[in-house]
């Protein structure tokens, strides 16, 4: 990879200052960024590690209300510590990559990258999470702007993500067998004001909400409510691992299974 200057600030303020440098880029767990840099597809001049900032780590919450996760909290920590507050979210974190990846990868890194097949975006969108940065709060609805695109501006760091805790929720991931990313992943969350269904892995536009499914499930939170519905395959990802029609089909199958598994 190209060489760069490595800096590891101890506070968000210092990190923001470091990111102001020409060609600076934030590094969180590095699970996606490092392979990209090895391919020389990313070539930052300054790499600003967020792993040394204590204020970016940790899980806190209020049972039944919300859980807030620091931006540089690893998947492993979320899997262990968010369980008491939001078991479906913890279960999702425990399915990302593999154990070694979960020990490095972070929620902030995943959301900032917004890989169309990453797991976390589905939880954030289905939960109506708030993405907090060093500058502002962004609603999940506004945050995801298509494959690898987000509302984050230059020098903006995800400091925390707050998830309202649903009555019931589940994430079902159908893994792409090589990368272990989601071929399709569906996060279903039932709140008092309705059901939200967010889908990752399937669409060329990245994570999205399945509005028709949400409407049906809001009336009747049972897989049978989805009978008769179908997901159009337009805009779905087609690749070596699955056709667009297959992915569209999986959206419905996995939504049903998520409803059945919701806890």
């Amino acid at each position: 990879m190209h060489n760069f200057d490595f800096v590891k600030p101890a506070s968000v303020a210092d990190a923001v200052a470091a990111l102001a440098a020409e060609g600076a880029q934030a590094l969180s767990g590095g699970m996606t960024l490092l392979p990209t840099m090895k391919q020389r597809l990313a070539a930052p001049e300054v790499l600003v590690s967020l792993t040394g900032i204590a204020e970016l780590r940790g899980v806190s919450g209020r049972a039944g209300a919300s859980v807030t996760i620091g931006g540089a909290t690893t998947h492993a920590t979320v899997a262990a510590e968010a369980k008491a507050f939001y078991p479906a979210l913890a279960a999702l974190a425990g399915q990302i990559g593999d154990p070694a990846v979960r020990n490095r990868g972070t929620i902030g890194g995943s959301l900032a990258n917004n890989d169309p097949s990453a797991c976390y975006p589905s939880a954030a969108l289905a939960s109506g999470a708030t993405i907090t940065t060093n500058q502002r709060d962004i609603a999940a609805e506004d945050y995801f702007q298509g494959m690898f695109a987000t509302a984050l501006g230059e020098g903006e760091i995800i400091t925390a993500v707050t998830f309202p805790i649903p009555e019931k929720a589940a994430y079902i991931k159908f893994a792409q067998p090589a990368s272990r990313f989601a071929l399709v992943g569906v996060f279903v969350a039932k709140y008092a004001d309705g059901v939200r269904v967010a889908v990752t892995g399937a669409s060329n536009d990245g994570v999205f909400r399945w509005a028709e499914g949400e409407a049906a499930l809001s009336g009747n939170f049972n897989g049978s409510a989805l009978e008769g519905l179908s997901v159009p395959s337009d805009g779905m990802i087609a690749d070596l691992h699955g056709t667009a029609a297959y992915r569209a089909h999986l959206v419905k199958v996995l939504t049903k299974r998520a409803v059945a598994a919701a806890m």
Binding site: Q176, P177, A178, S179, D239, L240, H241
Partner: peptide, 28 residues
């Protein structure tokens, strides 16, 4: 069940890394 070395219509390798060339893991 899994392994497939595939090329696209221009002869580009579609399964050119462990991200796309699937091999059995312990869980498989």
């Amino acid at each position: 069940l899994m392994e497939n070395c595939a090329y696209d219509e221009n002869g580009q390798l579609l399964s050119g890394s462990f991200m796309d060339y699937a091999m059995p893991r312990a869980t498989d």
